[in-house]
């Protein structure tokens, strides 16, 4: 079996994605639902329940009183934050083992993904005037391919690093040449396998090269790319790939942004990260 076949086969060994998030999302989309109905879906999933309570009580959401029931958490968090909390809690377990091979510490990958998700919302607000839950989920999952790729990258690191340093390739391009697939494409396949909406799996597959996506008008892949690059520059969860990343030059012009806007978003992320320590610690 070739390496790429082994990598693709590993997709089937990843546990199914908890349906709680999609069920709640569907319910919230209906014109008429009750807090009780939402709470009942969440209560069905004990680890989700524990994580939601932990998150609702964290400094990031800073409740005035201690929240001790799921019903209270649903009301307090509100639609937008609830969905985000559920996705964060659901996704966290896949990142528990980290991606050694890319990172020194097991928690690095999770910290990076939470940071990119928070940054995606800062950028979305700047660009479109509002936050976006689909974008948040795509950003949180953007590096999910690394959980499988990690061990393969570790075994072939010398070859990949040589291509990066001698051929001026990006780490992603070198992954693809040495292993037959890159972590972005693999992440797209994993989220397809989990039945995520196509705009999420596409954003993940193209998060290093949004300019190669045929549907260029889609903005989610571009914002995930920008948020990822900004976090890597800030050094939040940088791994062996470092800054060996391709620059997509149309980026700033496309959204009519200046350097200053990006620098300001980095300052804002620093504040968010201080408040999000508990979010990080659920892994």
């Amino acid at each position: 079996m070739t390496i790429v076949d082994r990598i693709l086969k590993s997709i089937n060994t990843i546990p199914a994605f908890p349906a709680t998030g999609n069920k709640v999302a569907q319910l919230l989309n209906q014109a008429d639902y009750s807090v009780m109905q939402v709470a009942n879906i969440i209560k069905f999933d004990p680890s989700m329940t524990a994580n939601i309570l932990k998150m609702a009580n964290s400094a990031y959401f800073s409740p005035l009183h201690r929240i001790s029931t799921i019903n209270d958490a649903v009301i307090y968090l509100g639609q937008k934050n609830l969905l985000r909390a559920i996705q964060t809690a659901g996704i966290s377990k896949y990142y528990k083992k980290g991606a050694l091979g890319y990172f020194d510490k097991t928690t690095d990958l999770w910290e990076h993904c939470v940071a990119v998700a928070l940054m995606s919302q800062i950028l979305s607000k700047k660009i479109t005037g509002q936050e976006d839950s689909t974008l948040y989920t795509a950003a949180l999952l953007h590096d999910v391919g690394k959980i499988i790729m990690g061990e393969f990258v570790r075994d072939s690191l010398a070859k990949i690093s040589t291509l990066v340093s001698e051929k001026n390739m990006s780490f992603l391009e070198a992954e693809e040449i040495v292993l037959g697939i890159n972590h972005a494409d693999l992440g797209g396949k994993i989220t397809e396998h989990w039945n995520f909406p196509v705009e999420i799996s596409e954003a993940i597959a193209y998060h290093h090269r949004p300019d190669l996506l045929e549907k260029k008008e889609k903005i989610i892949p571009w914002i995930v790319y920008m948020a990822d690059q900004a976090c890597l520059m800030m050094g939040v969860g940088g791994g062996v790939d470092g800054l060996a990343q391709r620059a997509v030059s149309q980026l700033l012009k496309k959204f009519n942004l200046r350097m200053r806007d990006l620098e300001m978003s980095m300052v804002m992320l620093s504040d968010d990260l201080d408040r999000a320590k508990e979010l990080m610690s659920i892994v």
Binding site: A230, L232, M233, R246
Partner: peptide
């Protein structure tokens, strides 16, 4: 002060 590859016109934070 590292930079991403061929970043000619955006994200020049490393050089700055």
């Amino acid at each position: 002060g590292a930079s991403i590859l061929d970043d000619t016109n955006f994200f020049r934070i490393g050089q700055k």
